[in-house]
Amino acid sequence: MSRLDALYLWIARWEGIRGLLGTFEVVTNMMCSAADILFIFCFLRIADIARKEDGRPPIRARYGIILVFLVLTPALLFFKGPALMVWTSAILGIPYLVLAWSVVTDVAGIVRLIRRRIERRGNA
C-alpha cells in the first residue's frame, strides 16, 4: 500500500474524521465570512472617497448590512449539515450581493479617482 493510499484510507476510515471535518467547516466558513466582510468594507471605504470627490452622497445602508452580517457570523457555530449550508449561504451571500452591487455601481468612480491620483502625481 502506497503512502497516498494510506492517506486516503485514513481520511475515509478514521473514526474522528467527521468531527474534524465539521470543525474545519465551521471555522473556515466563519473566517471566510470575516475576510469577505473586511474586503467589502475596504471596497466601500474606497468607493466613499471616490463619491466624495465626485460630489455624490456617501454610502450608508450598505455599511449597516455588512455590520449585521458580521455580527451574525458567529451564529454559524450553532448549525451543522444542511442548515449550516443555508445559513452560510445567507451570511456569505448577502454581503456578496452588496459587493456585486457596489462593484457595478461604484467601479467607474473608483477608476476615475485612481486615474486622477496617478495623473496628478505624474504632473507634480
Binding site: F24, E25, T28, N29, M31, C32, A35, D36, L38, F39, C42, F43, R45, I46, I49, L113, I114, R117
Partner: peptide, 22 residues
C-alpha cells in the same frame, strides 16, 4: 476552503492597503 480563505484574506489586505494609500 482553506485556499479560499488565503485568497479572501489576501483580497482584504490588498484592498486595505489601497484604501490606506488613497
Amino acid at each position: 476552503n482553506g485556499l479560499y480563505l488565503v485568497l479572501e484574506g489576501s483580497m482584504g489586505v490588498i484592498a486595505l492597503l489601497l484604501w490606506r494609500n488613497l
